[in-house]
Amino acid sequence: MKPGDEPKTVNGVEGPAASSRPGPPPPAGSPARHHGVLILVVERDPHIRELEAHFLDEAGYEVEFAKDGHAALEQARRLLPEIVITEILVPKLDGLALCRQLKGDPKTRSMSVLVFSILAASGRAAEAGADAFLLKPLAEHRLVETVKALMNRRRQLEGRSGNE
């Protein structure tokens, strides 16, 4: 993917090529798909977009992309993802403002927001109402574990509200 590509889903992104090179064999079988779990990633950097797409797809999630805050807000309202992962430094509407708007709108406030930034701003992210914060660079295990933890929390909350 080149800089400036339109946001796209992970479908069509090439996975690791089959190879006879030395190394651990790829994980056997494909991971369980979390059907219907959609994650909206708001990210300007094409490398991070591509890596996030790969690792989240590998973990079984559906991914949509937005490359600025306005587009992200529009897509969030339209697609109703369960999780929004946003960088703070994105054009038009920054990630923290986006988070505040999502949390202030009844239609989107239940979405979990993960702020994933190059800025060490966990405090500001929490103030903006974010559910989690991760500092870049991207480490797939941290990213995937955080997403899983957010999903577990959502399922617990859903279970609780379902019992009431």
């Binding site: 950097d45 094409p46 490398h47 991070i48 890596l51 870049k136 660079p137 991207l138 480490a139």
Partner: peptide, 9 residues
């Protein structure tokens, strides 16, 4: 450089 900065390596 962009790629190597994006990933934790």
């Amino acid at each position: 450089a962009g790629l190597l900065t994006a990933y934790e390596t």
